[in-house]
Design a protein around this nucleic acid. Structure first.
Lengths: 327, 327
DNA sequence: GAACAATGTGGAATCGATTCCACAATTGAT
DNA sequence: ATCAATTGTGGAATCGATTCCACATTGTTC
C-alpha cells in the first residue's frame, strides 16, 4: 500500500510538503505542487483515514442508529442522510437496534468508542435513560422523529397532521371516529398523534368512546386486532384513523374479513405514505412525511453541529395529505 | 479522552503491560492483571480503533454496497448481515449506490481507501468492469444475489424456483403462460429466472409467444405497462409469472383496471415474499428467499475470508413457494 | 545597508495503540 | 554452584498521517 512517504520520494519533496499540497495549507512552490499532484494522480494515492484521524481526531464517519432498516420511514431517512453526507465526504456506520432500547444505549457507547464525528438517532422514544446517555457521550447528535430539549432534532408535525386528517373525516360527515395508536412512550407517533385526534374531536364538539381508541404495536397484525376490538362495541364508529399505514392496512384486512366495505361502512386512513398504501383496495388515504428530505435536513444539522456552525435546533418537516378512495 | 497511558499510570504498570492484559498476549502477573482490569472497568476505557488499526491494519468494519436500502431484499439482507457481524464486533459502513453502476465502482475504491476489512456487495450485475475492479482492489469480498467465478457469493436458486413456479401453473391447468422479466444483465433476476421459465415450458411441450415475454424494470409501474403489452395480443395468456413481487403487483393493478379477475381470468405470481404480497387482493402467490438468512450466511463467508479460514465459495439459499389466492 | 516580513522546505514530534527487544528475577535441570 | 529456560516488565520503535519548529532564501521598508 502506497503511503505519503512513497509519494514524497517520487515527487522529490518531504512528507510535510506532500501534506501541504494535499491539505492546501502553508506555502508550497508551484513547481513542487505540480510534481506532487502528478504523482498523486498517477498512483491513485489516497491518505489513510485512520492515520489522519489519529492526528486530527476526525473520522469522517457518522453513526446512524435506527430501530429497523426494513420499514419505509427509517429506510427513506437513511437514503436521504446518505445522499447529503456523501456530498461532504462522510460515510454512514449503521447501527440497527431491532427495536431493542438496551441496544440503543449500547450503540451510543459503541459509536463513541468508534469515534464517529456525529450520531443521527432515528428515535422511537425520548426516555430519561436515553437522554442521560446522549448528554454523557457528548458527541454531536441529531434526533429524527422525536422532539427533545437541548438536542438538535428533525420532527414531523404529527399533531397538526392528525388534526387535519380528523377534520377531513368530519368534513365528510363522520362524527363517530375511532383511533388506532401505539404506546405513548413514543411521543411523536404515540402521544402527539393521539392528542391531535382527541383535540380536534373536542374542538368539533364530538365525543370519543373509550373503546374506539385502541393501542397497537407497529405491525399489521396488531392493526387487525385493534379493529376487531373497536367493532366489538355496539356503538360502532364510521371512520378510523390509524397512526401508521401498517396499522391501517391491518385494520382494512379485518374489515374485509367481516365483509365490510371501505369507505362505505368504514372510512380509514393511515400515516406514512407507504408504497403499499397505494395498492391497497381501495387505495389508502395517508399522510406523506417526506422522510428522505428529513434525512437530508438531519444530515445538514449534524454537519453544522460537527463544524460548530449555528443552525436551528429544531426542524419540523412539512407533510401532505394523500386523499385516496379509503375515505 | 482516556488513553492507554492514563490506564497504565492508574494501574502502576507500563503501556505494554496494559496492552498485554487487553489482548491477552504475553506474560502478565496475576496481581498486575487484576489492577489493570479493575482500572479498565472503573473508567470504562476502550482503546481507539483508529490507533489500533494503524498498527494492526484491521478496522473491524465491513463495507456493504447496495443498490437501494428501500426495498425488502436489500433491507432484509442488511438486517441479517448486521446481526451476524455485530456478534463478532464488526460494524457496517453503508454504501448506497441508488442503482448507479458508476457509484458501485466508486464505492469499491472508497471502501478500499477506508480500509474496511471486507466488502459485501449486494449485486445487481456482474459486468466485466465490476469484476475487474473487484479483482483490482484485492479486499475480501462476498457477493450476494449474483453468481461470480472466483468470488465468494450467496445466491438464490432463481432457475429452480421459477421452474417450480411454472410447474405449479401448469399443474393448475395453465398452458398459456406469460412472463414479466427485467434486463438480462442482471444474471440472477433477469437471465436465470427467465431461463427457468422457458426451460420448464419447453420441457412440458408448451410454446411461449414472443409477446407474452415482457421486459420491465424494478418498479410497480413497469409491471403495469408490461401487463398492458401482454394483453394487447389477441392470443391471451391465462397466467403470468413476474420476476419480482413489485412487477406482479403492477400487473395486478392493470388487470383490475381492466375489470379482469384474479385468478379467474389471469393467475399471477411474483418473487420476493414482500410484505405487500400478503395484503394484495387477492393475496399474491410468491417465492420466499430468506433474505435475512442470506445476509447471515454472507456475513459468515466474509468473516471466514478475512480470517483466511476455508469456507465454500458458493452458497445457494433455499426458497419456498408461498401459494396464495392469486393462482 | 539593515531589519523585518514573506516564502519555501525538511525533519522531529505527536496522535494512541501494538509489538519487539532488552533486561531482571525466578525456577528448574544438571 | 552453574547454566538454561521461563516469567515478568518497561521502553523504544513502528504504523501513516499532520503540525510545528527551525532554517534558508527572497523581497520590502526605513
Amino acid at each position: 500500500m502506497i503511503t505519503i512517504k512513497d509519494i514524497a520520494e517520487m515527487a522529490n519533496v518531504s512528507r510535510s510538503t506532500v501534506s501541504r499540497v494535499l491539505n492546501d495549507s502553508g506555502y508550497v512552490s508551484e513547481e513542487a505542487r505540480k510534481r506532487v499532484e502528478s504523482v498523486v494522480k498517477e498512483t491513485g494515492y489516497a491518505p489513510s483515514e485512520y492515520a489522519k484521524s489519529l492526528r486530527t481526531k476526525k473520522t469522517k464517519v457518522i453513526g446512524v442508529i435506527l430501530p429497523t432498516i426494513q420499514t419505509e420511514t427509517p429506510s427513506r431517512i437513511v437514503t436521504g442522510l446518505g445522499r447529503e453526507l456523501s456530498k461532504h465526504g462522510y460515510q454512514i456506520l449503521l447501527a440497527n437496534t431491532d427495536h431493542d432500547k438496551v441496544k440503543e444505549l449500547e450503540y451510543l457507547d459503541l459509536l463513541k468508542v468508534r469515534q464517529v464525528d456525529g450520531i443521527v438517532l432515528i428515535a422511537t422514544n425520548t426516555d430519561a435513560k436515553l437522554m442521560k446517555k446522549i448528554k454523557e457521550i457528548n458527541i454531536p447528535l441529531v434526533m429524527i422523529g422525536q422532539e427533545a430539549e437541548d438536542v438538535m432534532h428533525v420532527t414531523y408535525d404529527d399533531y397538526r397532521a392528525v388534526r387535519e386528517l380528523t377534520r377531513l373525516f368530519i368534513q365528510k360527515g363522520h362524527e363517530k371516529i375511532a383511533f388506532i395508536g401505539v404506546d405513548e412512550s413514543d411521543r411523536a407517533v404515540g402521544y402527539y398523534r393521539k392528542k391531535g385526534f382527541l383535540d380536534e374531536m373536542a374542538a368539533q364538539g364530538l365525543s370519543v368512546e373509550q373503546a374506539w381508541v385502541q393501542k397497537a404495536i407497529f405491525d399489521i397484525a396488531s392493526g387487525h386486532e385493534a379493529m376487531e376490538k373497536i367493532l366489538k362495541n355496539t356503538n360502532k364508529p364510521t371512520a378510523t384513523i390509524a397512526v401508521t399505514d401498517r396499522l391501517a392496512i391491518g385494520a382494512m384486512s379485518y374489515l374485509k374479513e367481516k365483509g365490510m366495505k371501505i369507505p362505505t361502512d368504514m372510512a380509514i386512513a393511515g400515516i406514512g405514505a407507504s408504497e403499499m398504501s397505494q395498492y391497497m383496495e381501495p387505495p389508502l388515504t395517508t399522510v406523506d412525511y417526506q422522510n428522505e428530505k428529513a434525512g437530508e435536513e438531519g444530515a445538514k444539522q449534524i454537519l453544522a453541529s460537527i463544524e460548530s456552525r449555528p443552525l436551528q435546533e429544531k426542524i419540523v418537516m412539512d407533510y401532505r395529505l394523500i386523499i385516496r378512495e379509503s375515505v
